[in-house]
Design a protein around this nucleic acid. Sequence first.
DNA 1: GTAAAGATTGACTAATCAGTCAAATGTATA
DNA 2: TATACATTTGACTGATTAGTCAATCTTTAC
Lengths: 187, 187
Amino acid sequence: MDKKSILLGTALQLFVVNGFHGTATSKIAQEAGVANGTLFNYFKTKDELIMALYRSVLKHMDDFIIERMESHSISKASFRSVFMETISWCLDNPLRYQYLQQFNHSPYFKLVTSKVLNQDEHPLLVLIQNGIDIVLIKQLPISFIYSIFTAQVNGLNSYIIANDLEKDKQSEFIEEAFEMVWKMIED
Amino acid sequence: MDKKSILLGTALQLFVVNGFHGTATSKIAQEAGVANGTLFNYFKTKDELIMALYRSVLKHMDDFIIERMESHSISKASFRSVFMETISWCLDNPLRYQYLQQFNHSPYFKLVTSKVLNQDEHPLLVLIQNGIDIVLIKQLPISFIYSIFTAQVNGLNSYIIANDLEKDKQSEFIEEAFEMVWKMIED
DNA sequence: GTAAAGATTGACTAATCAGTCAAATGTATA
DNA sequence: TATACATTTGACTGATTAGTCAATCTTTAC
């Protein structure tokens, strides 16, 4: 693994545990096994590291979901697939998930907006747009459906984590939660 | 207003804008119009201020909702009332809402848990328990329903804020979102 | 009026931090 | 081997920080 990836991985862990300003750049470099100055060869400032890590984690999630989408039709099954893969990613990548949440609710979030998020190639957004077009789901703004959908994922995820469910109990609630959200958005 | 309240109010604003570690205690004291040392008379450490502010904001929200609950029956109307008041509070108190979110997704969150949150007197939790008991809503764990309900509030709120809706458009979506969440949880 | 108790002050400290840079090390080419 | 180029190093700096405390001011009680 190259030094940049190691630095991003180390930063991820430390930021989630100690927060942004609670994590010194020197600590990241030390834990990553490189010199202090090396970090600043790869990331001009600490803020740039924080932003780069955010983009990297978003990409990791999107790649995971796109790669594993079962159905390419526009159907309940494809929504189910996106829902399942999203939850899977969150549960399999707790640090990355926490980092996204921490970042999204921090003052750093206002520094990104448009470019990073308004990606029309985002699988869920495309799916919702198509679902609305063929009157499979409710005639409401895409971003409204998107908010509802992702909020449901977050709610489910925080429930599973807070209650430390076993695998089979998890599956039950995931299935239940998807049926719930589908009932919400279907036309 | 007493100095403690002024300090809490100033801290709220600065923490939301600049983050926890991005806000110096000396800055809070300065903006609040008191000396540096005065802050530490009211809050032993910076962390204690952060925690006290969290509890204070939670209490503000609960008081608001309890005070304005229209119906004390166990009915769809009472769930609707809690939903509406919660959204109202979020929209009327953007700084406080943002602070809750920022705190909940920060490393500080793990320092609270049980005592602050497991309050059985929380209006929504009580309502859900009663709703399940009389088979008005689905026979699922209280905390699951709670997660779903609050997730819906968060999703709706982030949609309204991100799209900067006018008042009447807001009402439409709030109504729609409640009907959606009710469809999810009703038995 | 006065004395005791409590509240407020702000200069101060010891520690920590983001970012720099000249020197050292590694790598590729001819 | 020699030379050019890129990467890595870590000591260093100037700035900032949370928290302290002896001195000063304010309030209360009689």
